[in-house]
Amino acid sequence: MRLLHYLRALRGIIVRELYRFVHQGGRFGAALVRPLVWLFIFAAGFRSTLGIAIIPPYETYILYEVYITPGLIGMIQLFNGMQSSLSMVYDREMGSMKTLLITPLPRWYLLTSKLVAGTLVSILQVYTFLAIAWLYQIQPPPIGYLTVLPALLLTGLMLGSLGLLLSSFIKQLENFAGVMNFVIFPMFFMSTALYPLWKIKESNELLYTLAEYNPFSQAVELIRFALYGQFNQYAFCYTLAALFGFLGLAIVGYNPSKGMMQRKGGA
């Protein structure tokens, strides 16, 4: 019976997230328009400027659009993770986070369930993006669409747990703008999403080191390899470790006796 309770709660949280996603049609549109603008405009413009050498997992010279597609998938998941974080801060201000936190199940389970629900939504967005990209002649091998799924699950969970962690520390909705400036943009631009590591190394050694240790870089690389049916072990381990680190801290952040909630005087 207890197991059934856990499963019902997980299903309930996922269904609610999907309902919210469907009801907020604008959110789906915005989530898709952002990477598509990058793909159709930015990448097209930079195609001639940036030459990409043959680097794994690619076996031939590739167009810049092809190179940045995994980065844009990562971008979708990064924004989705931050969007979940934003909605959690909003839920906390509006009080609906309370209804989740007073559920008679362990808090780590409730938070993880919320994370899984957010990740599933991000995966739906990613596959829609990949379908549009396919029409734009960005066509990874068919098996890649299958092998990328577990990678997306892991990267979505990792980026979502970062959002969860941030939401446990952000007191008010207004503070969220800071997250955009200090987390999303540096994470995205200081990564392998837009340019390969060796290119960054050529221009700036410090930036190269930061990009290499940026968990978002490893998430993008995991997606890049998985999309071509390959497994990048280092990126997998790094992303997994980042997931446990962020999630562990987020759970502490939401713990009533140890976390920030009571110090803030809000729940």
Partner: peptide, 11 residues
């Protein structure tokens, strides 16, 4: 209400 019921294991 369905959401709340599921959180409490009522299905």
């Amino acid at each position: 209400l369905r959401y709340h019921a599921s959180l409490h294991g009522v299905g």
